[in-house]
């Protein structure tokens, strides 16, 4: 079985690149092995866990089930691209830190990329919509609670709702809405 190679031209984290890839390689393989973008994590390699999520042309994808050759002409962002060249964090990265949304950190890059995609829409999501939008990622450490809080707070802040954002607190039990009315 002879190997086949192809040259891929794309933009990664804002920089034009070209790379020879094995036509069977996944985008995860290319980003990790050829560009050493190791924030792109491998948790299942079949699109179940979301750890390898990157943004391709403004949309989040599991890069493990996206062939490297499909990246031709695409604009790709990984977590490394969210930090400014001087090391300044984006608001969502800072929120993950401040809200304790990071434990082992292995699912964090994927979660942050999807959060970034959600927040870019400029929409205000309901809690249920947010949970659904983030549900393509699995995490075993955090129970998702603080991740939810980080994303929701950042969303509200971006919408200028600073007071509301501060109310999204860990133990602020009183402001938590009742579940759906009891029939």
């Amino acid at each position: 079985m002879a190997k086949q190679y192809k040259v891929v031209h794309c933009r990664i984290n804002g920089k034009e690149v070209e790379q020879v890839v094995d036509v069977r390689a996944s985008l995860t393989d290319m980003l990790r092995n050829d560009f050493r973008l190791t924030s792109v994590k491998k948790g299942c390699e079949v699109g179940e866990c979301g750890a390898c999520t990157v943004i391709i042309n403004d949309e989040g994808f599991n890069s493990c089930i996206y062939l490297a050759v499909w990246a031709e002409g695409k604009d790709i962002w990984t977590l490394e691209g969210l930090t400014s060249p001087e090391g300044e964090l984006s608001d969502i990265q800072q929120a993950f830190i401040d809200e304790g949304a990071i434990q082992c950190g292995f699912c964090s890059p994927g979660f942050i990329m999807t959060s970034w995609e959600i927040l870019r829409s400029g929409r205000e999501y309901t809690d249920d919509e947010l949970r659904k939008a983030l549900s393509g990622h699995l995490c075993r450490c955090t129970g998702y609670e603080n991740i939810f809080r980080a994303v929701k707070k950042t969303m509200l802040r971006r919408l200028g709702k600073f007071e509301e954002a501060e109310k999204v607190n860990s133990q602020g039990i009183t402001d938590y809405p009742e579940p759906m009315p009891f029939k």
Partner: peptide, 21 residues
């Protein structure tokens, strides 16, 4: 005190190295 975990910045920027990395 709720001190921010010391490895949080590295983990939020993706530069933390795990075994495979």
């Amino acid at each position: 005190q709720a001190v921010t975990r010391l490895d949080a910045y590295d983990k939020a920027t993706g530069r933390t190295k795990y075994t495979d990395d």
